[in-house]
C-alpha cells in the first residue's frame, strides 16, 4: 500500500470515529436529561419514557456507528489502496 494513502486512511479513520461521536454524544446527553426531567415531573410515566428514550438513544448511537463503519472501510477495505 502507498504509505501516503495508508497514513491518510488511518488519520481519516480516527477523525471519522471521533467526529462522529461528538454530535450524538451531545444529543444523547440532552435527550437523557430531558427524559430525567420528564420522569421527575411525572414518575408514573417512567416506563413509557424509558422505552422511548432507549429507542431514541439507539437511533443517535447509529450515527456514531456510521462513522465507525466508514473508519472500518478505510482500515480494512480501503478502495484506494490497490
Amino acid at each position: 500500500m502507498d504509505p501516503l494513502v495508508a497514513s491518510a486512511s488511518v488519520l481519516a479513520a480516527a477523525l471519522a470515529v471521533g467526529l462522529a461521536s461528538l454530535g450524538p454524544g451531545l444529543a444523547q446527553g440532552n435527550a437523557s436529561g430531558q427524559a430525567l426531567e420528564g420522569i421527575a415531573r411525572q414518575p408514573e410515566a417512567e416506563g413509557k419514557i424509558r422505552g422511548t428514550l432507549l429507542l431514541t438513544l439507539a437511533f443517535m448511537e447509529s450515527l456514531t456507528i456510521y462513522g465507525l463503519v466508514i473508519a472500518l472501510v478505510l482500515l480494512f477495505a480501503n478502495p484506494f489502496a490497490s
Binding site: A58, E61, S62, I65, Y66, L68, V69, L72
Partner: peptide, 16 residues
C-alpha cells in the same frame, strides 16, 4: 441503507 448499516455496524462494533 440505515437499517442494514445500523445493525451491521452495531454488532460488528460490539465484537470488535
Amino acid at each position: 441503507l440505515s437499517l442494514s448499516f445500523r445493525l451491521f455496524g452495531n454488532i460488528l462494533a460490539d465484537e470488535l
